[in-house]
Design a protein around this nucleic acid. Structure first.
Lengths: 213, 213, 213, 213
DNA sequence: GATGAATGAGGGTTCATTCAT
DNA sequence: CATGAATGAACCCTCATTCAT
C-alpha cells in the first residue's frame, strides 16, 4: 500500500517534470511559467508546489536527472570498446544523444554548476549534480590516462585541463551544430551529424599521438 | 538643420544603447528592465521607445555593434603578423578581448543568429549582424587557406566546416573558462588565462600540419 | 467504547489546539497557517478539519480556553488577601501573567468579543467566551463594591463603567508596556515591570477614597 | 506647469491613499489587498506601484499623515485654555476625534512604533512618524509640568512614565469604547461618549492633586 | 476516523509597452 | 520631440479548504 502510494507520488512528479522539461526545451526556462507547466501537465498550479518546493527546485531536479543520464551514457560508451579512437567516438555519440534529449540542460550544466560551492546556499539537487559531474570527470580522466599509456594520446597533455577544454569545446560544437543547423546545411554540404563528426574528428587530432590517427 | 537633427538622434540612441550595454553586462539582459535603462540613460522610459522599437531591437543593435567590433578585432589581429601560429594566437586574444567586453552578446551571437533566416520576420539589425558574421568568416577563410598554402595547416581540412567548428569550440572554451573560473583555479593550478591558452594550444594541434607545431 | 472514543477525541483536539497556541504565540495568528499547525501537531492538514470546523473556530476555542484561565487567575487573585490594595495588586499581577501566557488572545478578548451579539452568527465558543467574561465582571463587581463598603474606594464611582474603564485602561497599559519595552527602558530608567507597577499605582489613585493610598 | 503637474501627482496619491484608508478601516490592513485598493481608487493595480513603492509604504504614509494630524489636534487642544482640567478634557476630545477619523492607525501608532529603532531598516515614513510621536510627548510633558507647577497635579508624579501610562490607558479606553459600543450601551445606561467621559474623569483622578478635582 | 491529494482564489509585485499631451 | 502617466498581463507563490478513499 505504502509502496503503491509512493509510486503514485513519483508518477505525479514525473508527469510534472516531464511537462516542465518539454516546455523548458521549447521556450527556455525563463520563458516557461509555472502556469504553463500546470496547463501542460494537467495539474493545477498549486499542485505543482505540492511536488516541488519552487520553480528553482523543479529545474534543479531536471538538471540532476539529466546529469545522471549523462553519466550513464558516458559510462556505457566507455564500456563498448577497448580501442581508444572508438571509445572517443562513443563518448561523442553519448554527448550527441544527451543533447538531443536535454538540449536545455546541456547549457546549464556547463554554465551554472559549481558557482560558490562552499560558501553560498545551494539546493541538495545542485550539490548532487556537482558530484555526478565529478564522477564523469573521473571517468574521462581514466580514459585519457589509458590513451596516453597506450601511446594513442600525446604524453605531454595535462589531464584535467584537457578534460575541461574538451568539455567546453565539445559542448560549444554541439551547440553551434544545434543552433545553426539550417545555416550549416545551406552553406556547406553537410547535415548536422556530418558536421558534428567532422568537428569531433578535428578535435581528436588535438590530442592524438604524433604519428597520426 | 535636418542634418543637425539626425546627428542629435544618433547621439540619443548612443546614450541609450550605452546605458543598456552597461546594464546588460552588469545584470544580464533578462534582469535589465527598460526602467533601469531609462534611469541610467537619463531619458524617460517613453523616450526609449522613440529611439528603439522595443527592447528586442535595442538588444539587436547592441549585438550588431559588438559584432562590428569583433570584426575589427579579428581583422587587426590578422594584420599583426604573417606567421600562422602567431596570427592564430592573435585571433584567440581578439576573442578573449571581445568576450571580456561583451560577455552577453558573445553567447547571443553564437546562439541566436540566423535562425529562420529566409522565412520569418527578423529585424534589420539581425540581418546586418548576419552579414558581418559572413565577413568574419571570409577573413578566417583566407587565414585558413593561407595556412594550408604555407604548409602550416593540414591540407585535408575543409575550410567552412573547420571555421564553424572553431567558432563553436573556441566559444565553448571561453565560456567554460569564464563560468567556472574559480573551480578551474582550485582544481588545476591554472588561472583563467593560463587555462585558456592551454586550450588554444590544444586546439591548434587539431589543424596543424603533421610535423608538429 | 463511546466514552473511550470521546476521550480520544478531546485528546486530539488538545494536541491540535496546543500546537496552534504555540504557533500563534511565536508567529501570530495571521502568520500561522493550517499547514504549520498540522506539522507541529503531527496530524495531517485534513485531520485538523475533522476536529475544528475551520481556522476561525480553532482560534475561538483557544480564546475561550485563555478566558477560562483568566477567570481562574482573577478568582484566585481575589482570594489571596482581604486587603483592598493588596487584592488590586494581585489582580494586576494576574493580568500580567495572563498577558505573558496569551499575548495574542489578550488583544482579541478586548477587541473582538460581543460584536453583533444578538443579531449575527457567532460560534458557540464565542458565546461561551462572552459568558466567562461576564463572570469575570461579576467578580470585579464584588471587589469594587467591597472596596466602596470598606471605605477604600470613593463612594461615587459607578460599578460597571468603572470595571469597563479599567479593562480598557489596564489592557492598554499592558499592551504599551509589551510593545514598547525597549523604548521605555531607554527613555526612562524603568524596566517593563517597574513601568507597569508605576502605571497600576497611578490608576489606583483614580478610585481610591479621598484621604490617599 | 511644473507646479500643475506636482499637484496632479499628489491628487493621485491622495486618491489612492484615501481609498486605502477607507478599506483599511473597514477590513483591516491585512485583509485589504492591493487589488481592493485598486478597484476602490479607480486606478489599475500597477498604477498603485507608481505612486507607492509597496503596500508597506502605503500604510506607512497613512500612519504618518494620521500622526501629523494627531499632533495638530493635541497642539490646538492645549491652546484652547489655560485651565488644567479644561486642557485635559480638550486633549481627550482630540484623541476621540483622532480615533474617529483614523480608527485603524490608532492601534498601529501604539503598537508598531519604535521597534528596533537604531538597528534595523525602517522606512523614512516610520522614522518621521516616530519623530512626531516624540514631539507629541514634548507637548504633553509641558502640560504635565505646568499642571504640577500650578498645584493642579500631584507633585510626586513622574513625567515620562505618566505620559506613557496615559498613552496606554487612554488608548485602551478608546478602543474598548469603540469595540464594545453596543455592549456598553446595553449593560450600562451610557452611550459611547458618556462612557468615555466617565473614564476620562476617572483617570484624571489618578494625577490630580490631593484636595480633589 | 484519518488523510493524501488536489485546488480555486487570491496575495504582492514587476515589466514592456502605449498614448495623450 | 519628449515624456508623465497609466496599465494589462504576467510573474512566483501561499493558503484555507474539500473530498475520495
Amino acid at each position: 500500500m505504502a509502496r503503491r502510494k509512493k509510486e503514485l507520488q513519483s508518477v505525479h512528479r514525473k508527469n510534472i517534470s516531464m511537462a516542465a522539461e518539454q516546455l523548458f526545451m521549447k521556450n527556455g526556462i525563463e520563458n516557461t511559467s509555472m502556469n504553463d507547466i500546470a496547463k501542460v501537465s494537467g495539474y493545477s498550479k498549486a499542485t505543482l508546489y505540492v511536488y516541488f518546493k519552487n520553480k528553482e527546485q523543479l529545474v534543479g531536479v531536471l538538471v540532476l536527472e539529466s546529469m545522471q543520464k549523462l553519466y550513464d551514457y558516458i559510462n556505457s560508451a566507455l564500456r563498448q570498446s577497448n580501442d581508444t579512437k572508438e571509445r572517443y567516438k562513443q563518448i561523442c555519440c553519448a554527448l550527441v544523444k544527451y543533447q538531443e534529449e536535454y538540449p536545455f540542460y546541456f547549457k546549464m550544466v556547463l554554465e551554472t554548476i559549481n558557482i560558490d560551492f562552499e560558501t553560498t546556499n545551494f539546493l541538495p539537487e545542485e550539490k548532487e549534480t556537482f558530484l555526478i559531474g565529478e564522477q564523469i570527470n573521473d571517468l574521462l580522466s581514466v580514459f585519457l590516462k589509458d590513451g596516453i599509456d597506450n601511446g594513442d594520446f600525446r604524453p605531454d597533455i595535462e589531464i584535467l585541463p584537457t578534460i575541461f577544454s574538451f568539455w567546453g569545446m565539445l559542448s560549444g560544437l554541439l551547440q553551434i551544430a544545434a543552433n545553426k543547423e539550417t545555416y550549416i546545411e545551406q552553406s556547406m554540404k553537410k547535415n548536422r551529424m556530418e558536421f558534428l563528426f567532422y568537428g569531433f574528428e578535428l578535435l581528436y587530432h588535438s590530442i592524438v599521438a604524433g604519428d597520426g590517427v
